[in-house]
Design a protein around this nucleic acid. Structure first.
Lengths: 210, 210
DNA sequence: GTCTATATGGCGATAGAC
DNA sequence: GTCTATCGCCATATAGAC
């Protein structure tokens, strides 16, 4: 504590906070732009314009385009707890969580578009998000497989279906519903379709919670 | 017959045949390029290079980029009879046909990539292929719905599922399997997963044909 | 930390010769 | 029917002033 009487010395945190806010604004804008045009076609120019700064200013915070994409994906994974909350191995909780995710996605078409375009683009081995999506699907399958294993132990999984098969089908269903929903939002109800899908594969009742 | 001894006069058909062959070569190359990079990122330059001609030469055959894309999609729809063969309204035939389609697709990842990226891109209303995909999914749903209506009449559809729901789920499953298959071809067997999916929803036996 | 200015290159498309 | 040459635009990225 010195003579200036200000409890905070030189407001260093203010500086950092502003930087953090700027970076957050950039990531928001980047998510919007990549969601609308995909990664390859979305431009840094557009991102910079939306956030109200120059391209050079933007590139001070993220050295290049792939780095910006990586930051967008990382933040999304940290923000949404969809997968971590399901790691418990409780089949009912996980499946209900997936339906909840579908419901939540129905109110943010921008994010859905981002993932549809990006996951298709990232199919190419040289795409900067390729490894991200490879890992993401492996993780997703193993989490959902555990859920179905739990239900199988309770004899609630349809005979002739392995937990891995059910997991693959579940992720496929969720992905496929997204494209169809984006094209015809009036016809497709992602959460309802997913619930119906689950009731065909396992003995589960969604009447209670979601 | 004249002094030149050539039975064909002036080879006029040769000219036309060459044009047709050139156009076909362009469409093949365009399919490859769009499949690898999508429509927005795939360039006419790359297409022209693969087919061994200049951009201007290419643009003589197709006036602009959207026209080239439309030609690629049109040809694919004419070549593959997947939908028309299913229009009969016979549920078993249609569902078997879909499994066949999945099997066939497993041997042409290029085409699968084209449709994954393109259908995601074309979600945007201003994409040149938007209307194409809107119509394609409407048509697909109505064809597959008819198939499930046929099975419903025979009491072979799972109770609580409408034919439309089943159709939406079927298209979603096929789409979703494609992305996952492109990322992990060793883990995902599209045709097998689709068969399992059908047996969960309807009373059908795939032991006989495909 | 943000700017202007600029380098460098790919893009779709056109004009006009052959 | 195909070419060369060229236009105008937008992209990513860098250099250096403030």
């Amino acid at each position: 504590m010195d003579a200036t009487a200000k409890p905070r010395k030189r407001e260093p945190r203010g500086e950092y906070a502003k930087t953090r806010a700027t970076r957050a604004a950039i990531l928001d804008a980047a998510l919007d732009v990549f969601a609308e045009s995909g990664y390859r076609s979305g431009s840094l120019r557009e991102v910079a314009q939306r956030v109200g700064m120059s391209e050079a200013g933007l590139l001070h915070h993220f050295p290049n385009k792939p780095a910006l994409l990586a930051a967008v994906l990382d933040r999304r994974d940290h923000h949404s707890l969809e997968w971590t909350r399901m790691t418990e191995g409780n089949g009912d909780v996980t499946l209900r969580g997936l339906v909840e995710t579908a419901t939540r996605n129905s109110s943010s078409p921008g994010v859905v578009e981002l993932y549809c375009i990006l996951s298709a683009e990232a199919t190419a081995a040289d795409h900067p998000a390729h490894e991200y999506f490879v890992r993401r699907y492996e993780l997703g399958r193993s989490n959902v497989r555990r859920a179905f294993e739990d239900l199988e132990r309770q004899n609630r999984l349809m005979p002739g279906i392995t937990p891995l098969n059910a997991a693959i089908a579940t992720l496929a269903m969720m992905d496929g519903l997204q494209v169809q929903w984006l094209l015809h939002r009036d016809v497709v109800d992602m959460a309802a379709e997913l619930r119906r899908f689950f009731t065909a594969f396992v003995n589960i009742d969604f009447a209670s919670s979601p």
